[in-house]
Nucleic acid binder design. Structure first.
Lengths: 202, 202
DNA sequence: GAGTTCTTGGAGCGGTTGCTCGGATAATGG
DNA sequence: CCATTATCCGAGCAACCGCTCCAAGAACTC
């Protein structure tokens, strides 16, 4: 039945090439937008031929989905690392502040801006929705703990507070992408302060 | 020299058709994104042939620029209507609040999201920059007056406060576009309250 | 009505793009 | 060393899209 496998798949090699292409995709998407990022240019950036590209990703949309999923994984890992903390507000401010750190890599804000307007594939919309849900899950958990501990306002339901935290981080990333003089490392302080005011209320 | 004009241009008719196409463009751009909005579909939405489209706009990019310029005009008109007010903070909060009202038309947040990632034409980038500058001009003027009157914090320069007001409105529009449960009319209050906290400082 | 210009539609062209395909090469097992 | 399969490339294909072009009709002046 099973034929002899003359050359098995080297999983490490495979994953490395994948990451190489993902990195190139992140770069080109962020500076040209989704449609502006032609597969030819992505291949050029990655230093590969188009045949190789489609050997690793069946579709250009698949590459984008893979990038988004990588980001979602990162969110979950970050959440796991904070699991045993006992200061809800501190955790929330740390999570919010980490957005500002992400924005230090200029590709990140550019990428989210470029990807925001992609409506082509429903699979992309779903990946975006999953990422949003992952962030919401993490934040809601800590907001609710904060409310139980009396550290976070209770006149606004947790879900809405979560939306507002995402509003702040989303607006922050947009500003970094659009306005060159908006320095994320400088504005980090105001971001955390605004979030603290939001959580406290009044 | 001048030949007899057998049929003069009906400016009213021309402007009306223009607006009709602009309206269709706004709709299709907002639901499909810039590249996803094919000229064929815009024509279909407007109920015209492609020949007619390019009779009014030399280029698809020109249509987008026209829409953006219309928005910029609106910003300036709104600013002119508030010129003789004497309460800077009240004016600023009203300007911020008007964003929430704009978001009531679901095409507006969809449009800004769709257009955010367009890097093709430098003319589009310029139109976006002009719009941003127009908003900044209006806001900065009132922020500075508020600072002089002691109603607005002075520990952060006016330019940065303006950036943060735009961060709030930008994030607000993004949330409306992304999250169906984020109701702009409900969240209007928190938007104004957050802006007030930001202006007051502490 | 004649003459002229404005207006409109849609077939189709040129260029671009995502993706396919077949062959060449490299790597591994026997 | 041979067989086999993964890996890689890039020429080229099919589809699509922005835009052109031209002909037909409408609207206006004289």
């Amino acid at each position: 039945m099973g034929k002899a496998v003359a050359r098995p798949v080297d999983l490490e090699r495979h994953a490395a090439r994948r990451l190489q292409i993902i990195d190139a995709g992140l770069t080109v998407f962020s500076e040209r937008g989704y449609d502006g990022a032609t597969t030819a240019r992505i291949c050029q950036q990655a230093g590969i031929g188009s045949g190789t590209f489609f050997h690793y990703f069946a579709t250009k949309a698949d590459l984008l989905v893979a990038i988004l999923e990588l980001g979602t994984d990162e969110v979950r890992e970050r959440a796991a690392g904070l699991a045993d903390r006992t200061d809800p507000v501190g955790v929330l401010l740390e999570l919010v502040g980490s957005t500002a750190e992400d924005a230090a890599d200029p590709r990140i804000p550019g990428f989210v801006r470029a990807v925001a307007g992609v409506m082509d594939e429903p699979r992309i919309a779903e990946a975006l929705a999953v990422d949003d849900a992952a962030q919401r899950d993490v934040l809601r958990q800590w907001v609710e703990r904060g409310q139980s501990a009396g550290e976070v306002r209770t006149d606004v339901p947790a879900e809405r507070i979560v939306s507002w935290l995402l509003l702040l981080t989303g607006g922050f990333l947009e500003r970094v992408a659009v306005d060159e003089r908006f320095d994320p490392t400088v504005e980090n302080g105001l971001l955390v302060a605004t979030a603290r005011n939001l959580l406290r209320g009044g």
